[in-house]
Write a protein that binds this DNA or RNA. Sequence first.
DNA 1: GAGTGGTCTAGACCACAGG
DNA 2: CTGTGGTCTAGACCACTCG
Lengths: 243, 243
Amino acid sequence: MAIYQDVARALETEIREKLHSGDYLPSEIQLAQRFAINRHTVRRAIDELVQAGMVLRQQGKGTLVLEHSLQYRIGARGRFSESVEAMGHHSESRITGRGLLRADDALARKMWVQPGTEVFQIDTLRCIDGKPVTLISHYLPTEHCPGLDQHYQGGSLHELLEARYGFQLTRRQGLISAGMPSRQESLLLRYPRNMPLLKICSNNLCTRTGALVEYSVSRSRADCFEYKIEPRQNLTPEGEPSS
Amino acid sequence: MAIYQDVARALETEIREKLHSGDYLPSEIQLAQRFAINRHTVRRAIDELVQAGMVLRQQGKGTLVLEHSLQYRIGARGRFSESVEAMGHHSESRITGRGLLRADDALARKMWVQPGTEVFQIDTLRCIDGKPVTLISHYLPTEHCPGLDQHYQGGSLHELLEARYGFQLTRRQGLISAGMPSRQESLLLRYPRNMPLLKICSNNLCTRTGALVEYSVSRSRADCFEYKIEPRQNLTPEGEPSS
DNA sequence: GAGTGGTCTAGACCACAGG
DNA sequence: CTGTGGTCTAGACCACTCG
């Protein structure tokens, strides 16, 4: 194990246990003295923390400790699991954006509609225990749910679709992938840009008529979220996250 | 503008115009001579390219140039989809490592066995069209498949388990997550360390007896691979990737 | 001006891949 | 064994922030 890795871990522990957002690390020279190593080795250690999104270097000032909630032990504790079957069926959502648009070629292909079709876009952010976890973009052809943009004010979109428009939805296809966050995604999720997102695209059809009612793209923080594939059995209508 | 930034841009141009995926950069010493700068400054420049996902460092070998298409658009063309149901049922695998170990606490919990249980580990690499795509670590309690380490020489592990030991497997649980590659994963997959992996952990039971026969962890390059969730219907026993 | 992080140089040795 | 990248040290000077 390299020295800089040891020092990085030591600093990480120290930050987690003793420092708060807004504090500064001791200067590189002080750290070099404390650990009895060269300043360059200290810098290499801090490089790791920067890469991990834990600190921010400020030339002339010092090395700033960032919010603890921004520290990511990927795959550690505090991980939520949710059944892939429950996608989109949760209720604690906040609206982050909405709009009316016409499907371009790429979107039209994914939604199985003609290019130019009028579509509502609703973006929501879901938090668990106050922690922003998942960002979902919902796309709904306006013809199936006129006035939706007026009626939806947060909460479960799928419940509203059922209560107001009588749609019961079935997922016809889902694609699971991974990617890196855009700048905006990173901001909304309070998540660094060098950590991955888990992404699911779903086509949700009306169970009775087979019409596509909703196409959704969900992006979840991979540090605290994973999807369960359950053996085929009863659907859980409301997905409750479990540790 | 710092020297290393200039050099990084020069190298970037050179890679884009003259080099191809699979080529190696000149060695750090050669580059230092060519640009008449110190080797450490060259390293700092190459750090930028690594961060950008353009090259991959290989200790003892050199600095490998990655596919140009990787640099810009993740999830563009050349994407493979595979049903989550077909996990592990493919056949073109190369063995990258194998071993005998005793399950530690973490592994034992995931495998639903007692800590200390003797387990075969077999690591395989799957390529599609010659492109390394998925890395799978298979863990099998030795009691169910004695001598497996001798018999398995690549190909479909699940076919061998059925042919030789009479196991027909059912996945009981799967967890889908995303993460960043380790150094070794990055090397085997020829994939940069700042691009995400799609990860699936599966518990595969013997359909008849319900015994856990295999626990597997698969990690796939997210730039060219995604999983399909199909509506519940017939299982496809052999998962063929489709574009 | 004093103190911080940022860059560059120089040299040494280690770990690893491959002939 | 050679050549590659990886780590560590040492010292110098620069660019920036703030009092």
